[in-house]
Design a protein around this nucleic acid. Structure first.
Lengths: 214, 214
DNA sequence: CGGCTGCTTGAGCTCTATCAACCCCCGTGG
DNA sequence: CCACGGGGGTTGATAGAGCTCAAGCAGCCG
């Protein structure tokens, strides 16, 4: 099985006629694209911007499940599982979206197997990531999970000013604990804090630290 | 999108010629089908038996990631993501397996879109489950997660004698804590312990308990 | 400048891991 | 037949990581 394509382009995946049926929309930061509990009516494609998939529990604890950046499909998980959205998708950075309604989605899945394959490959990677995080929740301590969150978020977008809150919601830790963990990592000279932003001093040492039994 | 098929049958999915190319094998409890770090060479189909996908960390902590029972594909996640297995698959109950080598897998994916679609739907459900567990790791207390583990494992196989160890490895809790949590649940009259086995007294009350903020 | 949101630090508490003892059940071998 | 051993389970005492609550600081924008 070949590597998943790193960059998607709707022009290459859809016919002109299909592309004419796309619904375009631009969302501003803070807006909600879909909410937990709603029924999927199709799938989306993100042309530009940054999105966060989060779960807000009744008691106020939030979880950051996934982040979407340039040129990926999203909303396909619930669509394929034929269940309601299990989390809420909000905009972190102004986003340009294309929506494929159910008819168009079915048509594209049926006519261009590359699309379904790509979506399946995306979920295969996301499932590995989720299960790795699951194992790390018991096996690794907070400061190690903070690093993994940092690496994931920086990988999604190097420049976005990720907050301690977002880091904590991704790795299952309170913001105060993130703050303390960052202090510890800085004292080990693995990262450097400059105002609110976090610079990685030595990525290799950082990854080493993840594998330490301590 | 229609519901994922509840029961698969290779006879309906593969041609006679393709079925002749399947590699059959029977595994006994305790045997390993594949190990973390190996490269996938194709995908598998489970005709009967019970399998556990587990991750064994260097420090001895184990995680139970997924359980497979009758008539499902497995090994497809790593195959589609084109990466190494991220966990180890072992046999809990004698299992009859069919293996599709790479050539056959590619051929089936290309010729019968239902197979890829089914595999994608399976991952869509698994991804939701993994992300729900992720949010519960922070939002819910141990006894609530024990219930979710119980419901998941009983759903996979009602009759299999799941151990406290397996329950704990699924929900990220030590066996002693599982034991104490079961005691608490019994005192609330939600479950009943009979020797080593666990009977659910009232599934509805059990599910209610999951949503309590306490 | 004021105000808001994010960040940091401290003190105390809680939940769960850890360590340890013991029981029960069952299979094995003398 | 009984002694033994091992795995699963339960229960108790203790310690520690991270949460909670609280206060104060820092960066950013009107």
């Amino acid at each position: 099985m070949q590597q998943p394509a790193t960059r998607l382009n709707l022009k290459e995946l859809l016919t002109d006629q299909q592309r004419a049926r796309l619904i375009s929309k631009t969302y501003r930061p803070g807006e909600t694209i879909y909410s937990e509990g709603e029924d999927p009516k199709g799938i989306f494609f993100l042309k530009s911007g940054i999105l966060a998939l989060t779960y807000n529990s009744e008691n106020g604890a939030e979880s950051l499940l996934r982040v979407f950046t340039n040129c990926v499909f999203f909303g396909h998980r619930s669509y394929l599982a034929a269940d309601q959205y299990h989390a809420t998708l909000t905009v972190l950075k102004e986003a340009e979206i294309r929506f494929l309604d159910q008819e168009l989605t079915e048509e594209v899945f049926a006519q261009n197997p590359k699309v379904l394959l790509h979506v399946a490959q995306t979920m295969a990677v996301d499932l590995r990531n989720a299960e790795n995080r699951l194992r790390d929740m018991v096996g690794k301590k907070a400061s190690q999970r903070v690093i993994e969150a940092l690496l994931y978020l920086k990988h999604k977008n190097e420049d976005f000013p990720w907050t301690r809150r977002e880091i904590g919601e991704f790795c299952g830790v309170k913001t105060e604990t993130v703050s303390r963990a960052l202090g510890e990592l800085e004292s080990l000279n693995l990262i450097r804090r400059e105002g609110r932003s976090i610079a990685i001093v030595d990525e290799l040492k950082l990854v080493d630290y993840l594998n330490e039994p301590s």
